[in-house]
Design a protein around this nucleic acid. Sequence first.
DNA 1: GCCGCAGTTGAATCGCGCC
DNA 2: TGGCGCGATTCAACTGCGG
Lengths: 370, 370
Amino acid sequence: MNKVIREAATILPLNQILDGDCIDLMNGLPAESVDLIFADPPYNLQLKGDLHRPDNSRVDAVDDHWDQFASFQVYDDFSREWLKAARRLLKPNGAIWVIGSYHNVFRLGAALQDAGFWILNDVVWRKSNPMPNFRGKRLTNAHETLIWAAKSEDSKYTFNYEALKALNEGIQMRSDWVLPICTGHERLKDDNGDKAHPTQKPESLLHRILIGTTNAGDVVLDPFFGTGTTGAVAKKLGREYIGIEREAAYREVAEKRLKSVRKFDRSSLEVTTSKRAEPRVPFGQLVERGMLSPGEELLSMNGRYRAKVRADGTLIGNDVKGSIHQVGAALEGAPSCNGWTYWCYKRDGKRVPIDLLRQQIRAEMVERPN
Amino acid sequence: MNKVIREAATILPLNQILDGDCIDLMNGLPAESVDLIFADPPYNLQLKGDLHRPDNSRVDAVDDHWDQFASFQVYDDFSREWLKAARRLLKPNGAIWVIGSYHNVFRLGAALQDAGFWILNDVVWRKSNPMPNFRGKRLTNAHETLIWAAKSEDSKYTFNYEALKALNEGIQMRSDWVLPICTGHERLKDDNGDKAHPTQKPESLLHRILIGTTNAGDVVLDPFFGTGTTGAVAKKLGREYIGIEREAAYREVAEKRLKSVRKFDRSSLEVTTSKRAEPRVPFGQLVERGMLSPGEELLSMNGRYRAKVRADGTLIGNDVKGSIHQVGAALEGAPSCNGWTYWCYKRDGKRVPIDLLRQQIRAEMVERPN
DNA sequence: GCCGCAGTTGAATCGCGCC
DNA sequence: TGGCGCGATTCAACTGCGG
């Protein structure tokens, strides 16, 4: 801990959870005293009725009072006020992370820019296990967006390029991060065994943020502390934290959690690493990418059957419609069929297995596990 | 081309590129005449000096005059004006796609919401081959963001759920799409052999958008047409397009490109459809036709409940009377139940789902529609 | 202890047409 | 135009139990 931090510590309520409204409390703290802010504000989801899964079970929606706003205008006023208070607290070279979904993140991003923050990246948290779209009316909402911004255009912000590169197996870290949502033992439960907080963030996400954009000893503030994921990871990684949370139930869970956290917990470093098999390539992608055209004919490897490619990546042959696997199986009268090795196409009079196209796509993907 | 489209064609400049300012031109077109808008507006990149690669070669940045705006305020005014004109053009059930990067997309998204559009999804285009961050000062900017929004909250927007699911090998399409940037033969060159447009989008992106959110024959408008990717894919897929582009050089490249594009043949454009589109068959018809007899017993799929068929096509089981759906729901204590997939009957000692009888009727209907 | 299977769950702006 | 009723719709993980 260097001298500056030690002095600040006499004023700053380090490693504590403050009880109350984040705007009031931030306005009461000394200006230019914080290195990084992580903020997970209410998303302002505008949910109407209940939603049921196809098996008729009810989805436990986020319908808490703290997520309700009367209008975009009210939400914007709130956002601009807490962002203003947050910006005042940041040191000149400080930075902020904000997370949101399409319901609120565009308003949040515009408010950040208007407040004088300088956006450095937007980062996509691609969820490996999102909730599906049960009604089939939209795309699976499989990601959330984070915005990383410096206090101002000329801030000398912290970016640990090499550390993130190392986390990413030697390849420069990209703006899309694949991480699982918070489940299992990490997900905190209340006394009834229900989830303690409806939107607890995974520690892996905060781990990457704090490793990449803070140094040991830095002061990290979270104005929407919830169950304290930011504090837990900060403590593990040797950063100082300040939490603000107005709901007593969340504060209690967070206090208990933080007591049991130890610095340099090695196991937490392993959270983000996971092995992955070869990435799945949908056949439809060959069509979208023009490697095969709708209307083009495929030939079975044994030369016995033909089928035509359709615009949605299905085949039609002998009146059978379906995936490359389904049509292959139907034509052969087999229970199953690997379409990738069954079909080929013609180029310059030669038969070429479609699997070669898949290999080409995989080579381009250079997929990283995380 | 059906009657409605033919009439509209007398007013709408279909399959043309209009020369001029998109706001003026959109205001001159008839209201509620367009099914889908795809817009790739200027990104308002705020680039300072030149950028060089580690080998000192200069990066060819987007520094065209059309991408320069004096301030966020000016950019917002511009965005809100073209969005207003665009919204007027959309049919009540129409929708819009907008693409942007962190420089502009937050402002665009907020403007969309303020204009009354209803966001359906934000979609991340994850680039398989992005430009690296040469200076190591930020994360590799490896994605762009698309916003899909309906004209209003109660628009009955087009979503070809099954077609997108087919494109994704039978798994529901997610909000993150991995696609390569536009390179190689697809990337259009000018007479000097330089790229004809700095931000040409890949056809694969438009293919997915048009397959997923339009039907054949729909009118698709692109107010920032550029080199005409939207038009090219629309033509291939049998959609009508309207392009607007004020730069003569881009219009020329696009005209040439569109002339050489051919529509895919009819059958390959057919796409996997949802059950919802199939004709409704009342359960009573199975009784009328003698496929099931009054008094016959049905068994629930899980084997737990029985019910008796009545002459009017209702069921009675455990003192509950009503439709196959109502009785199923009541017995299971569920909010709803699809009776077609819930009940089966016995034939030769085997359980047969009643849905097979419905499929039989539907098959006959295709042969003799009336 | 390991494997398989059944059950549960996650920041969700999640019908439509007829009368 | 509001109410009612048909009937369509899910993926990846993790938990716990039984063999």
